[in-house]
Structure formats: C-alpha cells, structure tokens
Design a binder for these strands. Structure first.
Length: 337
DNA sequence: AAGCATAGCAACCGCACAGCG
DNA sequence: ACGCTGTGCGGTTGCTATGCT
C-alpha cells in the first residue's frame, strides 16, 4: 500500500494548460497568494491536480520569469554551478532567480550537455568548463581525486561567478542575498524576455481575441508574429479545437477584458510593474521566502554555507579558501555530493 | 510535398522532506 | 515517536516544431 496519489485521477485534467485555466490560476494566486495548492482546484473549480497548479505557477505563470535566450554568462554560471552542485537544479536556479529549475534543467539536458560533450571530443574546450558532468560521476573517483577536483571546480566556479558579477549588466544575475522581487520592476531591455507571465497571458488573449477566426477550426490562432513563440499556446489551441471546447471570439474578448480588469492592464509595456508591485504583498514575500528556503546551501548545510559565502567573496582569497575548506569536513558532508 | 528524424520544452510522476497534530 | 498531509525536487515522458532527405 503506497501513498495515495496527490489527487483523484478521475476527473483531473492533464496536458497543456488553456489560457482560461491560466487566468483562473493567476486570479487565485492574486487573491490568495501562492501556496495552499491543495485548495486551488476546489476554490477555482480548476480540474487540475494541486501539484499541476503549483508547477504551472512556478514554471510558467509567476512574475519575473525570463524564458529562452540564455546569455553567455547565464550559460557559464549554469555550467559551473552544475559542476559544483551536480544536478541540484533548484539550488542552481536560486542563483538565477529569473530562471526556473525546470528551464535550467531543460537547457542543460538539451544544450549544455551536448555542448560540453562536443568540447570534450574536440579536445580544446574552454578550460573553465569542467571535463565531466559534475559530481554525478564523482562517486567512482577516489576521495583524493575528487577532493582535488572539487577544489578545481570550486575555483572555476568562483571565477565564473566573479566574472558574471562584474558583468556590466547586472540585471542578468541576482544573488540569493538580493531581493528577488526587486528584479521584477527593473526595466527589461534584454531581447528574449518572455517577461511577466501575466503580461504574456494578457497579450496572448488579446492577440487571440484579435485573431480568432470565424471558423473555429481554422489554424490561425496564435500565429501573430507579435506573440512570443509559445508552443504551449499552440497546444492550447489544439486542445481547444480538438476537444470541441472551442472558445469563440466573443468569449476571447471577454476573457481578455476580464483579465484587463483583473490586473488593470491597458498596455502591457506600461503596466509591467502593476502585478509586480502587487506581488510584493503576502504572496510575493511567500515566494521570496521560498526562494531562500529552497537554497539548501545556506539552510541545510552549514559547511556549505561557508562555502557559499566564500564563493561570492572577493576573488583571489586563496589562502582564506584553504582555511575555510580546512574547517569543512568532506567525510561528514560527502553525502551531499 | 511528404515522410522521417531530431530537438526543444511543458508537464507529469514518484520519491523525499518538512511541518503539524 | 509516529502518521498524515502538503510541498519541493529531479528524472522522465510525450507532444509539437523544425530540419533533413
């Protein structure tokens, strides 16, 4: 007898989320804050599992998420942090608050792994790039070897982070010590910013309403070039048309209007901060707390908390490094690697 | 143009952990 | 101390887009 599933399998919808569902979820979070996910389906009437709601919010709808277009520095940080932390995507994501762990994980699996493999094969890869997948394989290495490698990786990680931190556009990287939410209000001049999800939904809906064909099954919805590429939206469209629950033009407009009234959107560009500011209330601070909480480096591993502090300290402190690491027992903490 | 292969990514699944009674 | 419940996390799957033949 295992633990029962988190939600009743019957009557629970799966697959891509529709804009209507997104709106319901966002309005719930707006009203009640992000949390108590169990209550979301009952409160909103969403036919979704609570886990699915949480996932949708954290990976897609929450404000301040940047999608796609990983910068070189972000890429470098991911590589180094992965080498340092292994597949601790949540921990890695805590250093890149605009990115979700899922996004980073996907990017690693689809791009970076391949890139590293290529560099290894060519034999002239970036010396700062670790020559392995991180500590996932380190168990097979003798302790002396992986301790040595740990220090090497830490060194390269620190180097990369220092570079990243001194990068002139610091909007890209925010340390966990910084207020995550402070980034939400920063003007985003980076190109591929998918940006505040509420904007996205609103934009989506507006374009959707604008482009809804007279025939419900016409495949021109979401093809407007102004919409950020969003396969999921296509999936939405597909699911809507295939299930026969097509939303007609009128409904689309109403949804859009409803959304506008809900979040006060008139123009997306000018109202970016609307939701952000409202997010600084309980829900946002809850999220912020969560971000801090999930950073296992600082909350769960005292030894690594020191390591983290050192990692972000001024460069060139190699003596201090040795001292600090000297206090850190690899034996006691080896299970974290 | 059609069919097939591959890439990219959103979402799901199951386990682990923390908090609470 | 124990069981229950909610949440977090990492691995994996499956769908869609894109590229290639």
């Amino acid at each position: 007898m295992g633990r029962p599933p988190c939600c009743d399998k019957l009557g629970v919808k799966k697959g891509p989320w529709t804009p209507e569902e997104d709106i319901m979820l966002v309005s719930y979070v707006q009203e009640h804050g992000a949390g108590n996910w169990k209550a979301v389906p009952t409160t909103t009437g969403l036919l979704r599992c609570s886990k699915s709601c949480r996932l949708r919010w954290t990976n897609y709808l929450r404000p301040g998420i940047k999608r796609g277009g990983f910068t070189d520095h972000e890429e470098k940080m991911i590589i180094q942090l992965q080498a340092l932390l292994g597949n601790k995507w949540a921990a890695i994501a805590s250093y890149l608050p605009e990115r979700t762990d899922n996004d980073i994980k996907n990017y690693w699996n689809t791009h970076l792994k391949k890139k590293l493999r290529k560099q290894q094969q060519s034999g002239h890869g970036d010396h700062s790039v670790p020559k392995n997948d991180g500590f996932s394989t380190s168990h097979s290495v003798s302790r002396g070897q992986w301790e040595k490698r740990l220090q090497t990786d830490i060194h390269t990680a620190k180097q990369a982070l220092h570079e990243a931190l001194s990068f002139e556009n610091q909007n890209h990287i925010i340390l966990p010590e910084d207020d995550v939410l402070s980034t939400y209000n920063k003007p985003s001049n980076q190109t591929p910013v998918y940006a505040s999800s509420t904007e996205n939904i609103a934009k989506l809906l507006k374009n959707w309403a604008r482009n809804v064909p007279t025939k419900p099954d016409e495949k021109s919805i979401f093809t407007n070039s102004n919409i950020p590429f969003d396969k999921n939206s296509m999936a939405h469209e597909n699911s809507i048309t295939s299930s026969g629950e097509s939303t007609n033009n009128k409904d689309g407009v109403n949804l859009s209007q409803a959304f506008d009234s809900l979040f006060g959107f008139e123009s997306f560009e000018s109202t970016n901060s609307d939701f952000s500011q409202s997010s600084t209330s309980p829900e946002a601070s809850q999220y912020h707390d969560h971000e801090r909480k999930k950073d296992f480096l600082s909350t769960e591993v005292p030894g690594l908390s020191m390591l983290e502090n050192w990692l972000f300290s001024e460069a060139g402190n190699s003596i201090k490094v040795k001292e600090d690491l000297g206090d850190f027992s690899f034996d006691e903490n080896s299970h974290f690697f």
